[in-house]
Every structure is written in structure tokens, then in C-alpha cells.
Design a protein around this nucleic acid. Sequence first.
DNA 1: CCTGTTTTGTGAAATAAGTAACAAAAAACT
DNA 2: AGTTTTTTGTTACTTATTTCACAAAACAGG
Lengths: 210, 210
Amino acid sequence: MITNKSCIIRLSRYKNALYRLRALGFVKVFSDNLADAIGVLPSQVRKDFSLFGISGNKRGGYQVDSLIEKLNTILGKEQTQEVIIAGLGNIGNALMKYKGFEKEGLKISACFDIDSTKYSRDSDIPVLPLEEMKEFVRAKRIKIGVIAVPDIAAQSVLDMMTACGIKGVLNFAPLRLRASGDIVVNNVNLELELENVIYFVNAQEKTKVS
Amino acid sequence: MITNKSCIIRLSRYKNALYRLRALGFVKVFSDNLADAIGVLPSQVRKDFSLFGISGNKRGGYQVDSLIEKLNTILGKEQTQEVIIAGLGNIGNALMKYKGFEKEGLKISACFDIDSTKYSRDSDIPVLPLEEMKEFVRAKRIKIGVIAVPDIAAQSVLDMMTACGIKGVLNFAPLRLRASGDIVVNNVNLELELENVIYFVNAQEKTKVS
DNA sequence: CCTGTTTTGTGAAATAAGTAACAAAAAACT
DNA sequence: AGTTTTTTGTTACTTATTTCACAAAACAGG
């Protein structure tokens, strides 16, 4: 099993680039087309593919269709992935309304919150009480959850998701969650990302003066 | 200049952990307290600090107050950083309403959009036409921008920000932007993050069977 | 004031990730 | 049919990052 996160992210990027290239009429691509498209070296592309046993044709490059298919298989996108969201605040709301997921084969099946004024059992994406999570997740065999609740509630929501049988979590709460068992947790922390930008801007300014 | 992104992210995490520890009454900390708090090894903590010339006291650990101060200086947080947002869709809206930035010393000074129905010149965070960005950014000497516009507009907004003199950008549009000049671009791509979680969940399931 | 313990700071070792280089295969051209 | 060109796939190399290990400093207790 390859555990290099940036490598997996590159696979996703290759896939996205391939969709664009296919829309432009490409039937086959070479490693340097893909490299250009996502901003890496051709040897990196070939190395990544070789790691996952993807092979092309010497002098013939890669068939776009079959490559997309292989990448989708690796990335677990053969069928639509159902996802639940916990927390219908600013971020939860934005995610729920965001149209980009659908075309990526991601379906938000339900949101869960504690605030009863938010419940709407019959809307397109139902908003349900947190207590119903277990039932819902088990019935639909959902494996992926998003944590978009306030900091204070994040750990207990993760524990709840773990208990429900959720296997992977994308966490937006800006703190380190303790995962028990074999659940995968990825963190997205917007403050940290901004701080990072700020650091590099400042650092660059300092070097330019000297 | 240290250009290791994950190292900078760790500094931010140390800083956040230190605020929590201080709130709990800690006056000094040891490398293994911080290591525990953010989930790394104590030697990593000391190495990171050593890279930035942060030193503590043998057997005495680090003074919480002075450590926070040093980290804030490195991360460019001595004074509030002003940020603008381009695009008042789902994500832009969520960021604008998000309360977490304020306590991190980040101030959203204005939003810019093309949709005139969204303009509100006099609200707390003004929403202005995109054309006014240059004037605003130059007057307020703003260095950091967030791109939360649809894919199709993202590159032109980046170009606009570059022309305004913005030095660092956090980009939410799911495509690779071509940066010209010495502007720093960090990407946040929620689909990619979710795909990543899905990959690891699937990969783990496969290994467990065997 | 000496001995034992704790904890830092750093240089060396180990691991991981990315880049380069090139043989081998395949197509194209003559 | 042979020669040249192109492009893959993989091995070797380089660079970056993390982890280890231990000397040196600082405090504590007797």
C-alpha cells in the first residue's frame, strides 16, 4: 500500500487533467503532457504510474480512456461515494450547497446537527438530528464523514462516527483529533493554510531586502 | 529561509497548542508536551525550534509566553493581517462569516464580486465590485488574498491580484493557477482532500482482507 | 559541593521523496 | 529490412525530511 499522500493527490490531479484533455479531443497522452498539466516532471508522472502498476506503450504513450479508468479504480471512484456531514454551520452549509462534488462522483447523503430548527427530513439533502446518524450510516453503509462542527464538539462527533462504522473523515475543526481504531482522519485547517501563506510572503520580503 | 511547508504548519500547531496549554495554567513546557499535543516526536519539536533559532533551557524547557511570542513573530502575526476575498459564493460566504479568523489575528477587510446585487458598501465587511480591488488593496496595503470564485474566473482573478500588488494567495478553485512574478499561491482543494480520504479508506480495507 | 537526574540542542543515521539517466520497445521513415 | 526517433519503465542518484542518540547544561537533593 502506497502511503505517500502527495502521490495520491497527484493521481487525482492527473485524473482531472485527463478529463480536460479528453474534452479537448485527446485520445492518447504522453508523460510530459500530464507533467505540464499539473506542473511536475515527466519522470515523476511515470514513477507515480509505475508505483501503481499503470503502464502505457513505448512510443505510444497512454490511452486516455483506459488511464482515466485505472486512476478512478485506484482512487475508489468506480461508483458514487456517499458522504455525510456533521455540523450545518458556515462550512457545512457551503459544502452542502457546493455543486463541484457531484461531478466528482461524491454525493452528500445527509447532514446532521443538534439544532432542531435546522432539521428538514424531506429536502433533497436531509438534515437530521445527530442521534440518527448511526441508523442512517448503517442502513446506507456510508464510509466517509465530514466534521464541520465547532471545536468543542469535534472529538465527540469523531467518536460517534467511529462508533457508526465510518472509516474515513475529513475534519475542518482546527484541532488534533484522537482517532481510535482504524479510521483515517484528514485535516483541513483554513487558519493554518492562511498562516502558511503569510509566513511565505513575509519570508520572501525579508530575503528580497537582503 | 526555511521553505519546508510542513515544518511551518507544525509551528502553527505548536502555537495553537501553546495557547491551550497557557489557558490551562502552564508557564513552561517541555518538548514532549508539545510533541504529544500535536502528535509528533519530541525530537521533531526540538529540531523545528533549532531550525528557527528558538532555544529553551536545559532541564527547564521553554517559557510559554516567550515561545508564543517567538512563534508569532516567525509566522508574521505581530499585527493583524488584513485579507481580501474574491468571490462571494458558498465558500466566500462561509469564510466571511467564519468567526475563527479574528482570534487568529486575521481580519477580512473586504469581499469582491462581479454580481452587483451582492454589493454592500457600508456593512461590517464591505462587498465591492471587482474593479475596485486595485484601489482598495493599494490604499490599505493589503498583501493577502483569497480566491473563492468559480474555476473559469480563477486565473483572471489571480492575475488581477498580482497586478494589485497582492503577495500571497489562498486558492480554493480546483485547478492549477499559473503564478507570474513572486506571488505565493497555496491551494485548498476540497474534492482532492475527500478523494484522498476515500483512497486511504479503500486501501486500508484491501490490506485488511489479506 | 558533589552526585544523580532531567531535558535541551545538534550532528549523524535512517527513511522517504523526487530527479536523472538510460536501456528496451515500438513506431516511422527510407 | 535496416536505421532513426520517440517514449516508456526502471534503476541509480540526489535531495529532503525525520528519527536517533548522546554530550552538555541545569537544576535538585543530600
